[in-house]
């Protein structure tokens, strides 16, 4: 398989991998590293890539596992992830989005959710995956995904109402 063929396969979902990694690891740098790592792993196993039924789902699962490992090793070292995204190389659009204070609040609220809920919110509400796909990626069953998602959405809504009221009253 040549590089261009590989890139054609990977290109459509590399951003999704990155966003999922960022959702879990929070730090931009770490998410970039994780994405690179995952894609390089795919590249190194490129001979097997045709055996995978769904490369995208497979990569998402890989990303999830990779990030979990990262988080676990961080906890084992008793280090807190300090996400100091010093360098601001954000796209203008993101800046524009972050200028909006209440929108950035949503990001903070999601950050406070448990990892699994965060992932499912990411996969469903941002990447708009099918329930079945999510279930496959996360190795869960369909209803468990729905229950977790509903729980996450309710938490976000409650917290939003709180901050909303706080802001306006």
């Amino acid at each position: 398989m040549t590089q261009t063929e590989f890139l054609n396969i990977v290109m459509p979902f590399k951003d999704k991998v990155y966003r999922l990694a960022k959702r879990l690891l929070v730090s931009t740098e770490e998410a970039e590293d994780a994405t690179q790592e995952v894609l390089l792993k795919l590249w190194n196993n490129k001979s097997k890539i045709h055996e995978y039924k769904n490369v995208e789902a497979f990569s998402m699962t890989m990303t999830k596992n990779f990030c979990y490992d990262k988080l676990k090793s961080k906890q084992a070292q008793n280090l807190k992830i300090v996400h100091s995204n010093y360098e601001e190389k954000n796209t203008p659009l993101q800046k524009q989005v972050e200028l909006n204070d209440s929108v950035s609040w949503v990001g903070k609220i999601i950050e406070e959710l448990p990892e699994q809920q965060r992932m499912i919110i990411q996969l469903r509400d941002i990447e708009a995956y099918d329930y079945d796909e999510i279930a496959k990626m996360l190795n869960m069953n369909n209803t468990a995904v729905r229950v977790t998602l509903s729980r996450a959405r309710k938490t976000i809504r409650e917290k939003l109402i709180k901050t909303h009221n706080y802001g306006f009253r």
């Binding site: 590399k14 951003d15 989005v97 929108v103 949503v106 509400d125």
Partner: peptide
């Protein structure tokens, strides 16, 4: 209050992986 949430979701869809891949 739902507005920022959905805006956030839409905004986050645009974020891209810009780092080069040393393939």
């Amino acid at each position: 209050m739902y507005k920022p949430m959905f805006q956030y979701f839409l905004g986050n869809q645009q974020e891209q992986f810009t780092k080069d891949l040393p393939l």
